[in-house]
Design a protein around this nucleic acid. Structure first.
Lengths: 245, 245
DNA sequence: GCCTCCATTATTGTCCGACAATAAATTCTA
DNA sequence: TAGAATTTATTGTCGGACAATAATGGAGGC
């Protein structure tokens, strides 16, 4: 017998659950075409509007998607961006403090660096080297430094080959960086940043997991000191980056 | 002029963005009532069906919600469960390996224990003590042990007072535990588990952040050894727990 | 046989309107 | 003034319609 909460479950939600189950169980695989709204309306015995509402939900969950500019619907795995946007919203609306974000970054980044040290290939090392060179050339340009730092950490995150951690890190780093930008600007800490990055890359080049981890940790800890020196309140809630409004 | 990607943006999506912006910017606060579909249809100059599709999206994002059994819509902060389910789906569909999950747990749990050591109160310590007692009494009951272990780690996660990390940890631990269950059953590692938990609680009781962290780390590392002893393939993709189908 | 261009078809996005069920608000009554 | 009865508002679902355009299939040229 169905539990209470499904007895009065609206039709569109039943349709969602039904399709979701087909996808999660592999009955519909990633890449498969999803039947048209009209077809599904027939199959499920509901009106097309009802199917539509269900499709919106699934689309939002990233389980189905239309190819760029197309109207046909396909089964797909949720993209990082889908998840990320949602975690970001949750963090902002729960008024999660900067301290919590910093603790999270301090949790992620050293581990990612450690994992990266074990998997990194020469091509990625070249990317990091290029990033270092650009950083060295941009020590006076705070705006560029922030962008380069974001890229630097992103490259390392990817190199970790750990998609679960990348998924978690993405939204947190996104909310973390606006403050980072303030610190960098108020302290002109470009030199310190470059030094830390160089040490990290050196460790990665030597496939020195322990070194990469500990330099990354220092780097993140150092940032918090900067945050306090810049006289910013660490218990303040993260806010929604202007570039997403 | 609006950029390319909004020129042909469907109306329902514009409505979503519009409402989303109101919420994220604080113009509509958490707890506020959202106008009725009919009202919004008038306000936005679209048909009610169009508003409905937008509402489905926002509802799914956890930005609006109906109170249990009610029909009125309110602004709300996304719940952990909303996000968690999404991340879980992403991990499964991307066929993320157990190794990645384990690395993630090894990332989260020691840090959470460390943070917990700094914030934990006596009430929570009592909860942990009760958990230990039950664990000691259930050493022969594998099923109960798994549940108690889940609860143990959950208590510590909460005690960390870091909601960002809790948010990330939740879905990963959910996918992690099915394997954990297999290991425990095949190795009868109840004693080892209890010993580690006792050490962790002891450290927490002493507010010993370093100790809590390092015992937790040992605990997680130990689990991986168990995983290998139990002859399970660490590169296998996580699968969708049956209890969610 | 393979490719390009065009006509046809399928599909989506949006709208209009309607109705039953029921939650919410209001009025009435004790 | 508290609770019951009644009215109103709101949602969930349905039926159908139409324009825009992506997808498909065929005709003709290479």
């Amino acid at each position: 017998m169905p539990p209470d909460f499904v007895r009065n479950e609206p039709a569109y939600r039943q349709v969602v659950r039904s399709i979701e189950a087909k996808i999660m169980s592999g009955q519909w695989s990633v890449g498969d075409r999803v039947p048209s709204e009209t077809t599904m309306a027939g199959d499920f015995g509901v009106h097309r509007s009802t199917v539509r509402e269900a499709v919106r939900v699934l689309e939002q969950n990233g389980l189905v998607r239309r190819h760029d500019g197309g109207k046909l619907l396909y089964v797909t795995a949720p993209r990082e961006a889908d998840i990320s946007a949602r975690i970001t919203a949750a963090i902002v609306l729960h008024e999660i403090s900067f301290l919590e974000l910093w603790e999270s970054m301090r949790c992620f980044e050293p581990v990612l660096a450690e994992c990266a040290a074990r998997h990194i290939d020469d091509e990625t090392l070249d990317l990091l080297q290029a990033n270092l060179d650009k950083t060295r050339a941009s020590l006076e340009d705070q705006q560029a430094l922030v962008q380069l730092d974001i890229a630097f950490h992103q490259i390392i995150a990817r190199a970790s080959r750990n998609r679960a951690l990348q998924l978690c890190r993405q939204p947190i780093s996104q909310l973390f960086y606006p403050s980072f930008s303030k610190v960098l600007t108020s302290l002109s800490a470009g030199e310190r940043l470059l030094f830390a990055h160089e040490k990290i890359v050196q460790a990665l080049r030597n496939r020195d997991a322990v070194g990469a981890r500990s330099w990354m940790d220092k780097h993140i800890v150092d940032f918090r000191r900067g945050y306090e020196l810049a006289n910013l309140d660490i218990d303040m809630a993260a806010d929604w980056p202007a570039d997403q409004r």
